[in-house]
């Protein structure tokens, strides 16, 4: 069932056209990736969904209705973790719930049982600066999913991590995702990450962004934590080819 659908979206920021005829959809329980070069306008799509920007043309529908009638269906995880440095970890984790109207106590009741799963137990009273990069990222992810919104928007969640931590985090994340099955839209420019995590991938062109290819990834899960299959390798090469040459219409 299609949850979110964008049709022929165009958007300019000032004189610069950023999105040029973007159409995509997201099904319930599906993991979809927007793969594109840096600066393509991927984050702009998220800003549109979170209501920071409005499109110049086209429609966004959620559950078949215009997005404006379904406000606040998304939990957003920004590029850098955007943890509030002056709040302790626990207060950062409850932030989304509190802003959405939960009392502090109710918000904590929701967060506390999840701490263990996210490897944050025992760090509730720490400040973000005291955490490692991987832990900060896990905290940011927990802050996102605990909001209980139907769709998770993840903007390069692992982009700021070193290669080793990134692989660890991706493996951990896949495991979490396999149990929770969050409906997820992921932004990345990392081809391997896209292939490893996605059900479907949209490949975006450089700015102004349009959709160059839509590719399904049928491979079995879990995919991480074991040798990369030849199919995955071939798909990675194919995606890379599209990104680098911008020729691959499918």
């Amino acid at each position: 069932m299609t949850v979110l659908s964008m049709q022929n979206i165009r958007l300019s920021l000032g004189e610069t056209p950023v999105l040029d005829d973007i159409s995509l959809h997201l099904n319930n329980g599906e993991f979809v990736t927007l793969l594109g070069p840096s600066g393509a306008g991927k984050s702009t799509i998220f800003r549109l969904l979170t209501g920071v920007l409005t499109q110049d043309a086209g429609h966004v529908t959620y559950d078949g209705n215009p997005l404006a009638e379904n406000p606040q269906r998304f939990a957003f995880m920004p590029q850098r973790d955007a943890l509030l440095p002056w709040c302790r970890v626990l207060d950062n984790l409850t932030l989304g719930l509190e802003v959405r109207g939960f009392t502090r106590r109710a918000a904590r009741e929701r967060v506390l049982p999840l701490l263990d799963d996210f490897g944050l137990a025992g760090f509730e009273r720490h400040y973000p600066a005291q955490l490692s990069g991987g832990m900060r990222q896990r905290a940011a992810l927990l802050r996102t999913v605990v909001q209980g919104q139907p769709v998770q928007l993840l903007d390069e969640p692992f982009g700021a991590l070193d290669a080793l931590t990134r692989t660890q985090m991706q493996t951990w994340f896949e495991e979490r995702w396999r149990t929770a099955r969050w409906t997820t839209l992921l932004i990345t420019h990392d081809v391997r990450e896209a292939v490893a995590l996605s059900d479907r991938i949209y490949v975006l062109s450089p700015r102004p962004a349009c959709i160059r290819a839509e590719i399904a990834v049928p491979a079995q899960r879990p995919r991480l934590g074991q040798p990369i299959t030849t199919e995955a390798h071939a798909l990675e090469a194919h995606l890379l080819d599209i990104l680098l040459n911008q020729t691959g219409e499918t």
């Binding site: 800003r47 979170t50 209501g51 920071v52 406000p71 606040q72 998304f74 939990a75 957003f76 920004p78 590029q79 850098r80 955007a82 509030l84 932030l95 989304g96 802003v99 959405r100 909001q147 928007l153």
Partner: peptide
């Protein structure tokens, strides 16, 4: 980024 995050939460 923090402001955008809060806005996405409906702040």
């Amino acid at each position: 980024e923090i402001e955008n995050l809060l806005r996405s939460m409906g702040a």
